[in-house]
Simulated assay, not measured.
Amino acid sequence: MASKITLSVEPRGKPIGKLPKELVISLSDSGAALHESIAQISGASVHRLRITKGSDRSVVPNSKDTSIEATGLRNSSVIHVKDLGPQIAWRTVFIIEYLGPLLIPALFLFPLRPLVYFNYDQPLPNPSNVQLLTCAMLTLHFLKREYETLFVHRFSSATMPIFNIFKNSGHYWFLAGFNVAYWVFRPDSWAASSEPNQALVWAGLALFVFSELANLNAHLVLRNLRRPGTTERGIPSGFGFSWVTCPNYFFEILAWLGIFLASQLNLSILIFTLVGGLQMWSWAWKKEKRYRKEFGDKYKKKRTVIFPFLF
């Protein structure tokens, strides 16, 4: 078998300047080397390129761990190259999307309070203890998210389309930021009561602390499955992983239910939890299917992907 092959290169979608019609590459070269070669010749950023096989439209991974031979490409094979458009780093997107709900609660509760609730009798009463507690829980939750983004998470892809930042930020800034803050910190909300249900407060706080720590542990387990700079994956194990596919999502939802309880059952928090939970359920099923396909009999299939015995 020849060590070098010639690939036929075709654009997919809008034209890419200087894209070669053919490319000679070694079977032992990696998928990352193929991406780098096309990026260098065409002048496009390697992060904007998506390469698929013409035979079955499967993606040729931009990975140092996957050889050209392993992808199934052979001499005269056709590859399609698509320009994904302007990109932005995953880490940057996460930092920006969490920044809104990190800052908005404290802004609504303190400096912006007279402006946001201008239609109430002035001067406004001081925030209640439950409102202060809820604000602290929201702030700690998103501070933890920012910390994990900077120091814990390892991303399988370097970038995403830049326009995704508006969609992702919209979800967090408006649904978890403005929506939650406005309703929880209203002067007439249940959280504003001077005599809150103490059972809800303590149960919510306990559930929140436990879930945040368990969620962090799950993220550390996932982080340690992947060596820095690689896209390799392993089968996760440890606390929660024997129950469901994605215990990190399970504990994330439990943490929000803790905030919901401590806030005296504010419905805006429940709405955000339900919307986010449905999205996480979809992601978790995709991950379960990927585990089954990637690891085969080595992987113990899960019937529930987020909630034990339920979903």
Rank of each mutant, 00 (worst) to 15 (best):
K300W: 05
M160N: 04
Y291V: 10
E195S: 08
L267M: 07
G177S: 06
P187V: 08
L310F: 11
A203P: 06
S237H: 09
R50I: 03
A218V: 02
F174R: 09
P20V: 03
V184C: 12
T149C: 04
C135T: 09
N126K: 14
I5Q: 00
E69M: 06
T245A: 00
A32D: 08
I269T: 08
L175C: 09
R303K: 11
A33L: 12
Y172R: 01
W190Y: 13
Y299F: 10
F251W: 01
A106W: 09
T66F: 02
G204D: 01
I235S: 06
W183I: 10
V221P: 13
F155H: 11
T149P: 01
F208M: 02
R292M: 15
R233W: 05
S194T: 15
F307E: 12
T304C: 13
H47P: 12
P187W: 04
T139D: 14
T230A: 05
S242F: 09
N179Q: 06
V275L: 15
I271T: 13
H80I: 05
N164C: 13
W281M: 10
V244S: 07
T139Y: 07
V116Q: 10
G43F: 12
L107A: 12
A158H: 10
N215F: 04
P196S: 07
I253Q: 05
G13F: 11
V201R: 10
V130M: 02
L143D: 13
A218R: 02
E36Q: 09
F251Q: 10
G277L: 05
L7G: 01
L213H: 10
D188P: 08
Y117V: 12
T134W: 08
R48C: 00
K302V: 04
L107D: 12
L200V: 03
H153K: 03
T134P: 00
F250C: 12
E195P: 08
S42E: 04
N126I: 07
Y291T: 03
L115R: 12
P161C: 10
L138C: 15
L73N: 01
L49F: 10
H141I: 08
N197F: 02
S189W: 04
G277C: 06
N75F: 08
L270C: 07
K302L: 14
R145K: 15
E148G: 03
E294C: 15
L133D: 01
W243K: 11
L310I: 10
P125K: 01
P161Q: 05
Q264D: 12
S45M: 09
N248P: 15
F163R: 14
L274Y: 04
G85D: 07
P86M: 10
I51A: 02
R186I: 07
E252G: 07
K14L: 14
F309G: 15
L225W: 14
L102F: 13
A214S: 14
F118I: 01
I306D: 00
P105T: 00
V78W: 05
S8R: 04
F155S: 11
F311A: 14
E146Y: 14
T149M: 03
S45P: 11
L200C: 02
K4R: 06
S193D: 00
D121M: 09
N224P: 05
R50P: 02
S189Q: 09
L261T: 08
T149L: 03
K64C: 09
Q40I: 04
G17I: 15
W190K: 15
E232G: 14
Y182K: 00
I104K: 02
W190T: 15
Q198M: 12
V275N: 05
R50S: 08
L207F: 12
S55H: 04
I162E: 08
N119I: 11
T71P: 01
E148T: 13
V275G: 05
